[in-house]
Design a protein around this nucleic acid. Structure first.
Length: 499
RNA sequence: GGCCCCGUAGUCCAACGGUUAGGACGCUGGCCUUUCAAGCCGGAAGCCCGGGUUCAACUCCCGGCGGGGUCACCA
């Protein structure tokens, strides 16, 4: 009778979903889905500063974008996040830790009553003073346990509640990823579990809630290992079963320090909405960072779920490699159904501050055709937008290169301009104005030029797009349509002839 | 500094006592080609160091070195 697997992602509302957090969430989600268990979200907002919806929503939205749906925690009652508006997809999908205050106080009370915790009246200033003094004297900076045996009563003005850590022995556990881990108990200070305002600190709240939600596997970042012995002590003190722990290694920046803003983009939203990476690609990249399925690089969601295991997770921190993410994204762009891609691109283009690109190219057949032409050369939606600019821009807005620029000098020679003229003249004879017919016409014009298609195609490309790069020229012209091509050809001829 | 973790090419992973150390990104040579991509073929590049254990170590043990994390009334 295997125990049910119940995991959770417990973000602190920071206003954005960090890719490291996203990976942690993904691992939790995969573990639960792999074993048919549950995956919950619990928001660690006991710090009042962070208890604001606008700091939480970006995280929830980032998870939605990656497809990391949470299960409803049935016992949540009034503690769940209701969303900002009714019908919010996250309604009842996230437990708010701040609403568990009474339960946390009961837990602290229990510890106090059983002598496993005590009140401390040392002020923050005194603590800071003694800490620096201790450091100066070369002693450990932790709390000096001054109030440990004072038996401070509850009527004693402002006080915090501290956990009475064991003075000897060790606290150990078998980490599902890192293996056997152990800490000497005298390394564990008498940490605060209840602040002077009566609210719980992280360790108490996390333990009380994980036990309440019956979390079986606590999968979280590496940076939490030193909290683990404290939490194990709390679980035991509270009489709860200790869950399994799995600490996943950090994600590093290029300089091998913890990935942060100074390394560039770190939020899921930035990668998805601003840089236009496909969500599947980001998810695939993230799961591959620290977990592997043999030598397989491209892994579908189904394969991830079927093959995921904590044992398969690596133990070393990994550097975030944007180039590889880009390659993966390109793979997903190329293999995506054009109609689906077109919708995603339209939404990407619809974002604010995207200027010219917003020119109405309704999600119609033409857009899909453009996507087909672009998808094998664009690696992200942003790149697609850039490469597709010639299709999105109004005729007179295509920026032609200066007549004395390198490209113009190479291709818009007198003969190049002449080719443009011949093409312009041939336009009305191309019927229908479609790829194959256009191709035939271009080939004909190339005949008098040693059969070199490039001598016709490149000038045309520049005339029509302003640059030397575009999808195949025949298809490009067909998509643009006879009249647009006529207008751009005429404009280009005038522009380059003047030189 | 104390404690904890980590160490296969520039980067991400595979190998889990016996392989010419495998794959991928990136880099690079070529093919293809109307541009750019994509695709295909080829190349350079790696087991941190030193001791053990063993018939045999990238794999196990110890030490060193290097990197990271953590030491709050933040989570």
């Amino acid at each position: 009778m295997p125990e049910p697997v119940i995991t959770r992602f417990a973000p602190s509302p920071t206003g954005y979903l960090h890719v490291g957090g996203a990976r942690t969430a993904l691992f939790n989600w995969l573990l639960a889905r792999h074993s048919g268990g549950k995956f919950y979200i619990r928001v660690e907002d006991t710090d009042r500063e962070r208890n604001r919806p606008e700091l939480l929503l970006p995280i929830l939205n980032g998870m939605s974008a990656l497809g990391l749906t949470a299960d409803v925690f049935e016992g949540a009652g009034e503690t769940c996040f209701d969303g900002l508006v009714s019908g919010d997809p996250w309604e009842r999908r996230a437990v708010l830790q701040s609403k568990r205050l009474p339960a946390h106080q009961v837990a602290a009370r229990h510890l106090l009553d059983s002598g496993m915790a005590y009140r401390c009246v040392c002020s923050a200033e005194e603590l800071a003073e003694r800490r620096t003094a201790a450091q100066k004297a070369g002693r450990q900076p932790g709390y000096d346990r001054r109030c440990r045996e004072l038996a401070v009563g509850e009527d004693a003005a402002p006080f915090v509640v501290r956990f009475r850590s064991p003075l000897g022995g060790t606290t150990a556990w078998i980490d599902e990823i890192k293996g056997a881990l152990a800490f000497e108990n005298d390394q564990i200070e008498d940490f605060v579990i209840l602040r002077s305002d009566g609210t719980p600190t992280y360790n108490l709240a996390a333990v009380a809630d994980d036990a309440w939600m019956k979390i079986s596997h606590v999968v979280r970042g590496d940076d939490h290992v030193s909290n683990t012995p404290k939490q194990i002590l709390l679980y035991r003190g509270l009489g709860y079963e200790v869950p399994r722990f799995a600490h996943v290694p950090m994600i590093l920046g290029g300089d091998r320090s913890r990935l942060s803003k100074r390394h560039g983009a770190t939020s899921v939203t930035a990668y998805l909405d601003e840089e236009g990476f496909l969500p599947d690609a980001l998810r695939n990249y993230l799961v591959r960072l620290g977990w592997s399925l043999g030598d397989q690089e491209v892994i579908s969601l189904e394969e991830m779920i079927a093959g995921f295991s904590l044992e398969g997770c690596g133990t070393a921190a990994a550097v975030f490699d944007r180039d590889k993410l880009t390659w993966l994204s390109g793979h997903y762009v190329r293999h995506r159904d054009p109609e689906v891609l077109a919708r995603e691109w339209a939404r990407f283009l619809g974002l604010p501050e995207r200027g010219d690109a917003r020119v109405a190219v309704a999600a119609d057949a033409r857009l899909v055709r453009i996507v087909r032409a672009l998808q094998e050369r664009a690696k992200t939606l942003a790149e697609m937008t850039q490469l597709g600019q010639l299709f999105l821009t109004a005729d007179d807005r295509v920026a032609l290169p200066a007549p004395d620029s390198k490209d113009a000098k190479k291709w818009l020679t007198p003969d190049g301009v002449a080719a443009l003229g011949e093409l312009l003249a041939a336009l009305d004879g191309i019927e229908p104005f479609e790829t194959a017919e256009i191709h035939a016409a271009l080939t004909r014009l190339a005949e008098s030029r040693e059969g070199k298609l490039a001598r016709v195609a490149q000038p045309a490309r520049i005339a029509v797009s302003g640059g030397t790069v575009s999808p195949p020229i025949d298809e490009t012209l067909a998509i643009l349509g006879r009249e647009v091509v006529r207008s751009r050809l005429g404009r280009a001829i005038a522009h380059f002839q003047a030189a």
